[in-house]
Amino acid sequence: MTDHDQSVPTRDPAVIDVHAHAVLPMTQGAAGAAGPELGSAPDGRPFYRVGEYVLHGVRYEGSAFMDVNVRIDGMDAAGIHRQLLSPNPLTYFNDLDPATAVRYCRAHNDALAELVGAHPGRLMGAAQLPLRDVGASVAELERAVRDLGLLAAYIDTDPGRPLDDPAMDALYEAAVGLDVPVFVHPTPIGAGGPPDDPRLRRFDLDLLFGFAYDETLAVAALVFGGVLDRHPRLDVCLSHGGGALAYVAGRFARAVAAPRPWVPGFLLENGIEPYLRRLWLDTHVHSGRSLELLVDVVGTDRLVFGTNFAGWDAGGARVTDEVGDLMPVLSGNAARLLRLA
């Protein structure tokens, strides 16, 4: 622990970052043969293995992903006061057998709770869940919140079933009952490695475009599929501004303005805008013009600051400048979303 660990950065003590992944040393091998595993190739390049997929060239050890002192130093440099730590999207393990998935999620959440518990003034945690078994996910979320003090659920945009699958309702009901939000973020890997669509294997498009694709599909499932209508008190936060939401919102609205076989009555009656404005969205969209469009479409009431801290697209020490004068609003929103205020 650095001697300034519990200090408040001088630039803006109110800044809350809700989009920051962690790689936890204590979870290595916790999924059995599926890993995860850290190592070095014969040429010295680091690798990170998850099941049959191997990520080459990304050095987690010694970085903010694994070294809490490096993380907090980076937070101080960026003027970030508090950060919600979430699972590495590579390790959702949606295809694991339920028993192994439960063991992994328990190990992950225990390790995350230990980490954030050692830095209560700076770090908070979101729970990973074994979503192949929704009942087990409910039990683990209850344990993570009540026993471990984690503040949210964290799930994939495609956790092995559509987000509007009726089986997921039990998880949403549990989140409402526990009074915690659900964060939704894609994984960059498909069933057999990244990604299932070979066109996304070029030019790093799994990251550059694939995430936006998955997040937009998640918006459609949550809105068109009736999740928000069935669970009016549910708080769901999507990464990266909800993908292409701001750009396609008008197209979505036109589609539900007239009867179609798949358009539910609540959208015909209420329109789509009230449901889009129910979504919480992080501002990690990389462009002032994109952020302006997002604000124009959904307003600012449910926007929260996110960075993908230490990731390839994180923005560095001046990341807070990307949102400008919106920061006080975003931090106030984050405090509401995480039940800090």
Rank of each mutant, 00 (worst) to 15 (best):
Val176Ala: 08
Phe309Thr: 03
Leu337Gln: 08
Leu281Ala: 04
Ser290Ile: 09
Pro9Met: 08
Pro232Thr: 03
Leu148Trp: 03
Arg318Lys: 14
Gly177Cys: 00
Thr187Pro: 09
Leu291Gly: 10
Glu173Thr: 12
Val319Ser: 08
Pro195Phe: 13
Gly32Leu: 06
Val8Phe: 05
Tyr48Lys: 04
Val298Asp: 04
Arg103Tyr: 01
His119Pro: 07
Tyr275Glu: 03
Ala253Gly: 10
Leu337Ile: 09
Glu322Phe: 11
Leu129Tyr: 03
Ala107Glu: 07
Met124Asn: 02
Val68Lys: 10
His286Val: 09
Ala64Lys: 03
Gly149Trp: 05
Asp95Arg: 05
Pro188Gly: 14
Ala101Thr: 03
Val304Asn: 07
Glu322Arg: 15
Phe305Arg: 02
Arg143Met: 05
Glu52Met: 05
Arg277Ala: 01
Pro194Lys: 12
Leu267Glu: 07
Asp156Val: 02
Asn94Phe: 11
Ala41Leu: 15
Val295Met: 09
Leu268Gln: 11
Ile80Ser: 02
Leu200Gly: 06
Asp282Lys: 03
Leu200Val: 06
Thr307Ala: 13
Ala127Met: 06
Cys237Gly: 06
Phe209Tyr: 07
Val54Thr: 15
His21Gln: 15
Ser86Trp: 02
Leu90Val: 10
Asp169Asn: 05
Arg161Phe: 08
Asp165Cys: 11
Ala139Arg: 14
Asp313Met: 12
Asn69Gln: 14
Leu238Glu: 06
Ile155Trp: 02
Gly243Thr: 02
Ala249Lys: 00
Ala175Asp: 06
Val285Ser: 11
Gly160Ser: 05
Glu114Ile: 00
Val180Ser: 13
Glu173Ala: 15
Ala99Cys: 00
Leu55Asp: 03
Ala64Asn: 04
Ile72Tyr: 01
Val236Pro: 14
Gly177Trp: 01
Asp76Glu: 12
Tyr53Ser: 12
Thr2Leu: 15
Gly160Ile: 03
Ala255Phe: 13
Leu129Arg: 01
Gly160Cys: 08
Gly51His: 04
Ala30Phe: 07
